[in-house]
Amino acid sequence: MRACTEPLTENVVPKANWPLALSAGLLGIGQNGLLVMLPQLVTLTGLSLSVWAGLLMFGSMLFLPASPWWGRQSERHGCKAVMLASLSGYLVSFCVMALVVWTMSNGVLNAVWGMAGLVLSRTLYGLTVSGLVPAAQTWAIQRAGLDKRMAALATISSGLSCGRLLGPPLAALMLSVNPVAPLWLMAMAPFIALLLVLREVADPPLPPVAHQATRLQASMLPYLLLALLLAALVSLMQLGLSPHLYPLLEGNAVQVSHHVALLLSLAALATLAAQFLVVRPQHFSPRVLLCMAAVLMAAGLGLMCIADVALFYVGIVITSLGAAMATPGYQLLLNDRLTTGKGAGVIATSHTLGYGVSALLVPVVTRFYGEQLLMNTAWGMALLFLAISLWVRSADRTP
């Protein structure tokens, strides 16, 4: 048994991380591809949109208990074993979903048995795929060594961003072939990734760093809170695009949909640009990167709250640049205190909690203040993120 604990050594020989980034990108393809398929899934299965939304949320919420567990397994059994298990679970879960949807559309399965199969599919997904990104991040950092940790994280994040960018057009293209074809594509893609990861040599164990803890401590909670706030404010920003644009475009639904699609594409491109041009070259320390990201997000969301349509585009670019820079900032600061595998696991859990907080805030804000205040709520979270980042910068000292 080998540990995938720490890459923090000067003598690590760099290895290519693109197979790991490609594997992580499957998570983005699956998430955004299913969103594109939702109307078709409702038609094929006869289940309501709310039921499908609940199924997707159920699979995502299973990341909460599973991500930290997989983080510990990556340190005990190795990152390669965890990635193989995650990719296998990804493959099986989408095979089950594709088979259930196909049989329901042909009248072979009734709603009760179909629902049971879909719950099984999402359970497999949540309990296995939750280990994919933490293991990829840990393995990439292990391979890169101390001096290239930030670049390694940027590589995995860029793979995830590319997956989210490619997921919708791939799903739309496959829908033109067959209504169930996107699900079979999502089942075949992890098989290719499995073959790539199987070819990778499991890296030998590296010595842990003395100052790193093996358990989560109270002093580490600010970094987890930053991860939660980032996920929540990005989710609220995305959900608030349409309501905020409606009055600016005089309620023209077609134009609103067109602008939202362009804004989300622009945000994805800005995220990739930040990962490749700022994070990967490692121009800044994690603390400086975190504070810069907080300032950019607060400025960008503030601009989106008060500006017209033209400056709205500028605002989302600034916000997306900041969001892309924030994640490696707080993750590396946490990794200075907590072993890498456990750190990646609890950060993934915090991100999932952030999406949950966003889902809870939407009906509250909408009911009491109106849909247009969703963007202002995201801005408020960005200001809180900025305050905590400045506090971390002033109080934080290298152990």
Rank of each mutant, 00 (worst) to 15 (best):
C4N: 11
P7Q: 13
P7G: 15
N11S: 14
A24N: 01
A24L: 01
G30E: 03
G33Q: 01
M37T: 02
P68Y: 06
E75R: 08
A81S: 11
G89R: 02
F94T: 03
M97L: 09
W102H: 09
T103M: 06
N106D: 05
A116Q: 02
A116I: 06
G117E: 05
L120N: 01
R122C: 05
V133T: 07
A140S: 15
I156M: 11
L170V: 07
A171F: 09
L175K: 08
L175R: 10
P179T: 14
A181Y: 09
E200K: 02
V201F: 09
A202W: 08
P207L: 14
L216H: 13
Q217I: 03
A218Q: 13
A218W: 15
S219V: 10
Y223I: 09
L224D: 06
L225I: 14
L228A: 03
L236R: 10
Q238N: 13
L249T: 07
G251D: 13
G251P: 02
G251W: 08
A273H: 04
Q275I: 06
V278T: 06
G302T: 10
T319M: 12
N335P: 03
R337G: 07
V346L: 03
T352W: 10
V364T: 14
V364R: 11
G370W: 04
L374D: 08
N376G: 11
W379K: 03
M381I: 10
P399E: 07
